[in-house]
Amino acid sequence: MATDAKARIAHYLSGFFPVTDLKDDDDLFALGFVSSMFAMQLVTFVEHEFDVVVENEDLELDNFRSIGALEAFVGRKLAATAAS
């Protein structure tokens, strides 16, 4: 599951970043290739791809900073959904 989520996140992000191997801990916001609508694209992708709802309190930059951070965030959201 974790590997699957990471692969799906990496595939989506590959459209934004002209680097062949985006590493799990590469800082997406420091790479400097994002457009003004990137933040909303990323939120919409996470919600659609993993069927979760991104709330205001989830908007910590650290949740969206890297592939690894996104994978961990999605994992927490899915676990919370399953527990509720």
């Binding site: 590997t3 699957d4 692969a7 799906r8 990496a10 595939h11 989506y12 459209g15 934004f16 002209p18």
Partner: peptide
């Protein structure tokens, strides 16, 4: 930019294939 994004994703193996490899 959207056109370049689509092209970049098309060149990269799809997530399903990546997952299968993993």
């Amino acid at each position: 930019e959207y056109a370049f994004q689509e092209s970049a994703r098309a060149r990269r193996p799809h997530a399903d294939a990546v997952t299968a490899d993993a």
